[in-house]
Design a protein around this nucleic acid. Structure first.
Length: 471
RNA sequence: GCCGGGGUGGCUGAGCGGUUUAGGCGGUCGGCUGCAAACCGACUAUAUACCGGUUCAAAUCCGGUCCCCGGCUCCA
């Protein structure tokens, strides 16, 4: 089966065909860096992390760009409140954004371009748009002429009239059409500024993405992604100006939008006081727990963040790790089989089947919940193979398949510290062994309880007592 | 008002015309175990927001209704 992707433009799941064979260009709208990143950002970039990982797994040569908006009204406002330089403030939060992404185990994009680093490119595009008659200058501001684009509104399936009547903002009289948007803004006192043919100013919001995607990925790209909230006006405007600039359609072959994250059913916002930063999140939960949480819902659907759900994911993650640990242990002890056993043959076939189903699920618009359910089937097969004391080759096959898929999911990447246990604990375990040998269950249980209070879980297995840290 | 996304068992969450209503969590029982833990097996859950229609057959398609969430202003 081949990859299919749901395209916001058509609202349908379409066959994925990159512009250049085996290559994928993907641009995702990054954060406006005016504050610490929150778990909503985490959700979005985690989703695209999964998508790019899978594209790479499929053998595509992926070029992935995520922009950093470091010039923006909100940044300026924050900076003025705190007496900081806007670009300095942006730099600070750009750094924390990257740190947060790394902490979440999200792979770096190939490029993280900033707006402030691309002013000449932006000016060039605006000049071309003016030359082509798609933009006009008013008092040092430059606006995009929406009415010049006959198919404006195609992404959101809205007509210009509908947009006009729905506008909730006070109309700027200087605009030819209320839906016209700023490409360049005349800077006010205390705002960052760059010189331009229209005077000192700064770029508008949408133009940066056109400039940077063009620069790094070309005038036409395969996938453009972002949070659902960006569809309008941002992506609609970006689309209009990019196509106007290049004269080529489509600007983007596939538009992908991720569902929103809510907290206890409500939108996350400062005013509701339910704002959770990535730092807060990781203070309480492991990054892979969050990843499993994201994996368990389809990227396009909304997700609701609750402590209870995270707790479930934590348990599930523990289960996965247990199985992998047990498989490794069993492989050490298992024998190679002389003659192939029917049961083993059947199980091996089952592994291949499950993997195939899993890949099909991922091919179907990155259906991670379905894929995850197949992954759990793989885990179950692993446990079964252990319980049935199967051969080394069968056990190895399950383990390898699990690890292969886990890597696509970005799971099981934790460096498991195989620290030697402190001596006093080793002694306790030995003491317990001796107690068990003389059937002194009371003493044995006491030691087990004591170790539990030290976050060490003991498991008595046929091969002897195993220990693990309580997560 | 306009444009989207949703409403599936106790919770979570797939399925998008018909094989068992996936998988996970939870619950019950059994196995393993000295007891646990982990794991295996069996079972459980009277589920598809509502009302019509199409069809031999609908959670799945069509029409209508209700409810929730988001966008239309900065927002992942």
């Amino acid at each position: 089966m081949t990859l299919k992707i749901c395209n916001t433009m058509s609202g349908e799941v379409e066959l994925f065909k990159p512009r250049v064979k085996n290559k994928v260009t993907i641009y995702v709208c990054g954060p406006t860096v005016y504050d610490y990143s929150h778990i909503g950002h985490g959700k979005t970039y985690m989703s695209f992390d999964l998508i790019t990982r899978y594209l790479e797994y499929k053998g595509y040569d992926v070029k992935y760009v995520v922009n950093i908006t470091d010039i923006d009204d909100k940044i300026i406002k924050r900076a003025n409140e705190s007496g900081m330089d806007p670009l300095e403030l942006a730099k600070k939060f750009e750094k924390t954004f990257h740190a947060d992404m790394h902490a979440l185990g999200i792979k770096d994009a190939d490029v993280y371009p900033t707006v402030s680093g691309h002013i000449p490119e932006i000016i060039e595009i605006i000049q071309t748009l003016i030359k082509k008659g798609f933009a006009y200058v008013v008092d040092g501001d430059v606006y995009f002429t929406v009415s010049k684009v006959e198919d404006y509104g195609k992404l959101t399936n809205q007509t210009l009239d509908a947009i006009k009547s729905g506008a909730r903002v006070g109309v700027d009289e200087r605009k030819q059409n209320p839906a016209d948007f700023a490409l360049w803004k005349n800077s006010k006192v205390g705002e960052p500024r760059w010189s331009s043919p229209w005077g000192e100013g700064r770029p508008g919001w949408h133009i940066e993405c056109s400039a940077m995607s063009t620069k790094y990925l070309g005038q036409q790209i395969d996938i453009h992604g972002g949070g659902r909230d960006l569809i309008f006006p941002h992506h609609e405007n970006e689309l209009a100006q990019s196509e106007a600039y290049s004269g080529k359609k489509p600007f983007t072959s596939y538009w992908l939008h991720t569902g929103f994250l809510t907290i206890n059913g409500e939108k996350m916002s400062k005013s509701l006081g339910n704002f959770i930063t990535i730092i807060d999140l990781l203070d309480k939960w492991d990054a892979e727990v969050f990843r499993l949480f994201i994996l368990s819902t389809h990227y396009r659907k909304p997700v609701n963040f609750t402590q209870k759900t995270l707790k479930h994911q934590k348990q599930s993650l523990q289960r996965i790790y247990n199985t992998v640990d047990n498989l490794r242990l069993q492989i050490q002890n298992a024998q190679e089989l002389e003659t192939p056993d029917k049961m083993e043959e059947e199980l091996q076939k089952q592994i291949s089947r499950v993997k195939e189903t899993l890949i099909n699920a991922m091919d179907d618009d990155f259906n991670t919940p379905k894929a995850l359910s197949e992954f759990y089937n793989l885990i179950k097969i692993g446990n079964k193979a252990i319980a049935a004391k199967m051969s080394k080759s069968t056990l190895t096959k399950v383990l390898n398949t699990i690890m292969e898929i886990a890597h696509v999911f970005g799971l099981l990447e934790k460096k498991r510290e195989i620290k030697a246990l402190p001596e006093e604990i080793q002694i306790l375990i030995k003491e317990r062994d001796m107690a068990r040998n003389r059937k002194d269950w009371k003493k044995a249980d006491e030691i087990r309880l004591k170790l539990k209070s030290m976050s060490i879980i003991l498991e008595d297995k046929p091969e002897g007592t195993q220990w693990r840290y309580q997560e």
